[in-house]
Amino acid sequence: MAEFKELVKCEWEYMKCFSSCSEEKDAVRFRDPLLPEMYDHNYTYLKTSEDGETLPERIRREIGISRSDGLRFCHIMLDGFLEDSLSSWLPVVPRVTRYGFYIQSLKDFSGLGGNGDCGVEKVLSPSAAGEILLLELEQDEVEPGNAFYSKRAARRALAYLSEGGVDSYLCYVGKQAVGRCDLFISGALAKIEDFMVLPRRQRRGCGTALLSAVMEAAAAGGAREAYLVTDEDDTPKEMYLKYGFRKAGEKTGLLFML
């Protein structure tokens, strides 16, 4: 199984498909000039400090850098879980999210089955990329025309339709898209991201069919292991464990609104 540090490096390579990257000895910063309001495209991954600087000092410094960059937030990622008691010394109370890394070998992967009425297709055109926007609007119960959702969909389409970037897959029942999932391959690792099935189509085998097809695409692309990152407070992780994924690491997200 890949070491946790290899998963983190794959995370960084994935983000380079959407954001510029600047790396220092103790931090990696991502900035997306096309979508500066998106938390996941604009964050800092704090590595282990080599200068003895305390975590509160480093976080205060990152908040200052985010302000100077014109961001209205400061988003920080840390390896492992941050103890709740440590929030007392933070300059601003953040939103804390705990994430788990879950991984599965593709060596002997033979499919998961799922709904046989589902078809899975790779996004290869702007019109297919536009279907992702419709899925997200329905999933989040957002009215069509929402400026942020439209801007985010256009930003992601640039990556989906480029060579060597992130691939996106749509799950169809008939001609209707009911789910989607992204796939990014870096060497022997495949990252599965933004996996979703519309609520009205859940528990019907669509998610299983979609995940199986994406993992088969990962294996065909040369990956030996596939992993995903999920909120530890969400229930989908139980589904991944049922499908044979194993927990491989943890990280904490801190979101400070400035």
Rank of each mutant, 00 (worst) to 15 (best):
L82T: 02
C118E: 07
I76K: 05
C10S: 11
P94I: 00
I192H: 02
D234P: 03
V28Y: 08
D234I: 00
Q104M: 11
E131S: 10
G70Q: 08
A27G: 08
C181D: 07
L55T: 01
V8I: 12
L210H: 06
Y160V: 01
T208P: 00
A2N: 04
R201H: 10
S49F: 04
R155M: 01
R95Q: 10
S87T: 08
K5V: 11
A128W: 12
K242W: 08
F30T: 04
L46S: 02
L210F: 03
A177M: 10
D167Y: 06
L71C: 01
L211Q: 13
I59Y: 03
L124R: 12
D231Q: 01
S87V: 05
I132A: 13
Y14V: 05
Y99C: 15
E62H: 06
S20E: 14
S162L: 04
G207Q: 04
E23R: 11
P91W: 07
A188C: 15
G64N: 00
D234T: 09
D40P: 10
T235W: 10
Y172N: 02
D84W: 08
P236S: 13
P36C: 09
C17N: 12
I103G: 11
S125V: 04
T48D: 15
E3F: 05
M15A: 09
Y227T: 00
E131L: 13
D194Q: 09
K16F: 00
G100K: 08
A219E: 02
D69W: 05
L46Q: 03
D231I: 01
A188P: 14
E53C: 11
E250N: 08
P94W: 01
E238N: 12
T44H: 10
D234H: 09
F148D: 15
S68C: 05
A188Y: 06
C10W: 05
K251M: 13
W89K: 13
P199T: 03
T235M: 13
L198W: 00
V229M: 10
R29Q: 13
R95W: 07
R224W: 07
R31G: 07
S66C: 12
Q104H: 06
S150P: 01
P56T: 04
A190E: 08
G100A: 10
D182Y: 02
C17P: 05
Y102M: 13
I59W: 03
P126F: 06
E13C: 07
A209H: 02
V92T: 13
M215Q: 11
S20H: 12
L71T: 02
F101N: 06
S22Q: 13
F4W: 07
H41F: 14
T44W: 00
W89G: 12
A217D: 04
G179P: 01
R31Q: 07
A188V: 06
